[in-house]
């Protein structure tokens, strides 16, 4: 209990005083994870929709692969990116290892399958009638597809929030490819690991609280945005 109280106190203090280092670390966490999320959305949403809506050969196999990759162990994702970027690796010449760009790459590898797989599921859950109705009302193929995505948006938003949750809380991959370098690639999660290893439990908890607060704020933002854009949402009433 003592450690918790101290952690809470320390957490508020860190935020209150705008501790330069923690500010830097928090900002980088946000930058890396949000960039990864946007890239994953740009890749995953269209790909997931395409997988759900087109009849390609081996579609089931591809979907199964994507679902499997949704559970890719972060350290493995990190290792793949590491091997790609190491000076002896395929992209070694660009010297991206131990940079935020490398961290974004690893997180995209983790998040894109989640966005893709959950988007595909959300679209597959829809009825044929969504398309039929759009098409009989004279929608172009593009317009009909957009309507399908619109109907699946709850699932897509769930996909995005899940992916964000995964990357912002992820430590194995960013530790490996980012290197946890102070003032350069240290993020909230790697800071927690470091503080824990150094025995600074209350600081670790303080940083953890910052991380959770940020996740909460982002999700709140996404949900309010969604509520504002789409006023009509069904809630199942249970009596």
């Amino acid at each position: 209990m003592e450690i918790l109280v101290q952690g809470l106190k320390e957490g508020f203090l860190l935020i209150w005083q705008m501790d330069a280092e923690i500010f830097d670390v928090t900002l980088l966490s946000l930058q890396v994870s949000l960039t990864a999320l946007v890239l994953s959305a740009l890749i995953g949403v269209p790909l997931g929709a395409a997988l759900a809506l087109t009849k390609v050969r081996g579609k089931q196999v591809i979907l199964n692969t994507v679902y499997t990759l949704m559970g890719l162990p972060p350290v493995l994702a990190g290792l793949l990116v590491y091997l790609l970027l190491t000076s002896r690796g395929l992209l070694g010449q660009y010297e991206l290892l131990f940079t935020p760009a490398a961290m974004v790459m690893a997180q995209v590898l983790l998040a894109a399958p989640i966005v893709c797989g959950l988007t595909a599921r959300a679209v597959l859950a829809l009825n044929q009638e969504v398309y039929d109705t759009a098409a009989t009302l004279g929608a172009t193929r593009r317009q009909a597809t957009l309507s399908i995505m619109r109907e699946a948006r709850m699932g897509i938003i769930a996909a995005l929030t899940t992916a964000l949750g995964r990357v912002i809380a992820e430590v194995g991959a960013v530790m490996l490819v980012g290197g946890n370098i102070r003032w350069s690639t240290r993020v909230l999660t790697t800071s927690i690991v470091l503080e824990t290893r150094m025995g600074n439990f209350s600081t670790a908890i303080a940083i953890g609280i910052i991380l959770l607060t940020i996740s909460f704020a982002i999700n709140l933002f996404i949900l309010t945005l969604e509520k504002r854009t789409f006023r009509y949402e069904n809630t199942i009433q249970i009596t």
Binding site: E129, V130, D132, T133, T136, L137, G138, R150, F230
Partner: peptide, 15 residues
Amino acid sequence: RRQMSMVTQTSFMFQ
């Protein structure tokens, strides 16, 4: 299609 339209059996409504 733009010259026809349909009331489907379940009258599906967009959200």
